[in-house]
Write a protein that binds this DNA or RNA. Structure first.
Lengths: 129, 129
DNA sequence: ATTTAAATGCAAAAAAATTGCATTTAGGAG
DNA sequence: CTCCTAAATGCAATTTTTTTGCATTTAAAT
C-alpha cells in the first residue's frame, strides 16, 4: 500500500492488517480489533498503531451509540445517509451539499472552510418492512 | 430544577451539581468534572450520574480533539456556524436546514430521523481583518 | 548482505471504569 | 411534620483499559 509512503511511515505487517480492518469495517472499536488480531498482534501495538493513524489523520475517532469507534478518514469527504436498520450508508450527492453550503454563505456572508453533515434514518429499502 | 421531575428521576445534591457544571461548560471531561467536585462527590457517583444522564438523554457524549467530552443535549436542536477566529457561534436558520433535509428525502425516499450539521469558517465580522 | 533507527512483544505499571455492600437520603405515605 | 422505603451515595476492592520500559525483531536504506 502506498498510504504508508504517502504519510512517510514504515510499512509493517501489523499496520497493514489494522489498516485493512479499519477499511473493511465502517466504525470499529479497539476491543473488536483486538478480537480479530489477538493472535497476531499485541494489544499495546494496536494502541500504538491507532495513535499513529490518528496523529497522521489516516483515521478518525468518533462516538456512535455512546461508544468510541475508529474509522477511515476519507479524503474525498463525502456525506452520508446511514440507515438505522440495515446500517448501509449512501452518499448524499455533492451537488446537494454544495447548494446548501452556498445558501448559507449567501445568506450570511460567511467563509465556510469545513463542515460536518450526517443524516440518519430509514432507507427506502428498509421502509416497507 | 424541574429537569429531574421532567425525566422522573430523583433530585439529589450531587446530580444538581454535576448538571450545573455540564450546563456551564460547553464540553467537559470526566476528569475535569472530578477535579471540580472531588471534595464533595465520589468518582463512582460521577460515573453513575453521567451514565444516568446519558440514558435519559439529558446529555450527550462527543469527541472533540480526540477526547471524550460530555455536554448538554439541547432540545431546541439548533445548527451552528462557528467562526474559527472569534469562536462565536451563529445559528443557521431552521428553514434552511429543513429545505435541505426535504431535498434529501425527496431525492432518495429516505425517512430521516436525525441529523448532525455543523459549519466552520470565518464569519463576516472577522473577514475584513 | 549489512546496518540501524524504528517497531513490536511482553510483562509490569498506571489510569479509568465498575461493582458489592454498608450507610445515607429523597420524597411519598400517613 | 415524622416515618418509612426504595433508591442513591461513599468507600474499598476489583476489573478493565491504556500506557510504559526494555529486550528483541524488522523495514528499508546503504
Amino acid at each position: 500500500m502506498d498510504i504508508f509512503r504517502e504519510y512517510n511511515i514504515k510499512c509493517t505487517k501489523q499496520r497493514q492488517i489494522i489498516l485493512d480492518i479499519i477499511k473493511n469495517n465502517n466504525g470499529i472499536t479497539i476491543k473488536e480489533i483486538n478480537e480479530l488480531v489477538k493472535k497476531e498482534i499485541n494489544l499495546s501495538t494496536i494502541y500504538r498503531i491507532i495513535e499513529l493513524f490518528l496523529n497522521k489523520e489516516i483515521i478518525t475517532k468518533k462516538i456512535v451509540d455512546n461508544v468510541v469507534i475508529y474509522e477511515l478518514k476519507e479524503k474525498t469527504h463525502n456525506h452520508y445517509f446511514s440507515c438505522n436498520k440495515c446500517h448501509k450508508k449512501t452518499i448524499i450527492p455533492k451537488k446537494d451539499i454544495e447548494n446548501f453550503e452556498n445558501k448559507i454563505i449567501m445568506n450570511n456572508d460567511y467563509e465556510v472552510t469545513s463542515h460536518n453533515i450526517e443524516f440518519r434514518g430509514i432507507c427506502s429499502k428498509c421502509k416497507g418492512k
